[in-house]
Amino acid sequence: MAQIHEDVVWLKPGQVAERAGLAVSTLHYYESLGLIRSRRTAGNRREYRRDTLRVLAFIRASQRVGISLDRIKDALDQLPEEGLPTKKDWARISRQWREDLNDRIEYLTALRDRFSNCIGCGCLSLKSCPYSNPDDILGTQGQGALRFP
């Protein structure tokens, strides 16, 4: 584990949570997943580096576009352990996710454009519904409940 310099500004969990717009329990959860780190004071209380706020903003923005916490952790693990991540570090992560994000944008655009045809339809057709079974992909895999083992 990397050493954290003593001259770094440290914040209490309540301060970080308030500034990030999260619950303290969310900080603890993210820490248990290895997304953020804290140190313990002499009184065994957690403290977070101020730059944790930037990491939390990255996590929230990534989740907002559908990136899983596992993929976010993989990306954060690529950042330098010493010092602050640079613009170049963040750009590298962005390039890695570009194709996936473009696929999501394409899917969501198609969903938006076709969604008005579905509202109020009520057909619940697993064969022809463009949302639950686009192009009858499941029909090519045989009969029965394919999504529910």
Rank of each mutant, 00 (worst) to 15 (best):
L101E: 07
R49F: 00
P13N: 13
R64L: 11
L11Y: 01
I4F: 06
P80T: 08
Y29D: 09
V24N: 08
P134M: 04
L146P: 01
A61S: 08
F58G: 02
A91R: 14
Y107I: 12
P80W: 05
R39G: 04
D70G: 12
A23V: 00
D135E: 10
D89R: 03
A23N: 14
L126Y: 13
V24T: 15
L69I: 06
I4Y: 07
V65Q: 06
A75R: 03
G21E: 03
K73F: 02
T26S: 15
E47P: 05
Q96A: 14
L79W: 09
L124H: 12
K127M: 11
R60W: 00
T26M: 15
A57R: 10
N44R: 13
T52R: 03
L111F: 07
E47Y: 02
D89M: 09
G122Q: 11
L56T: 00
Y30P: 02
W10S: 04
A57I: 01
E6Q: 14
S68V: 01
L76C: 07
N133G: 05
L101Y: 09
Q78E: 15
D136M: 03
L76A: 06
Q141M: 14
L11S: 03
L22E: 13
R37M: 02
S68P: 01
R40T: 10
A23S: 06
H5I: 09
K73P: 04
Y131A: 08
S116Q: 10
Y107M: 13
E18W: 01
R40K: 15
D100S: 11
W97K: 02
R112W: 07
N133I: 07
Q3G: 07
A61V: 02
D135G: 02
P134D: 03
G66D: 13
T41D: 11
K73G: 14
R64W: 04
S128Q: 12
L84C: 04
Q141E: 10
T41M: 08
A23L: 14
E31I: 01
A145P: 02
D136P: 00
R40E: 14
I93F: 05
V9H: 12
M1K: 04
L124E: 13
A75C: 14
L33G: 08
T109N: 09
L126Q: 13
R92Y: 09
S94M: 01
R54T: 08
R64T: 09
D77G: 10
D113F: 05
I36Y: 02
S38D: 05
L84Y: 10
A23K: 14
I67K: 00
L138A: 05
K88R: 14
R92D: 06
L111V: 15
D51G: 03
R95G: 01
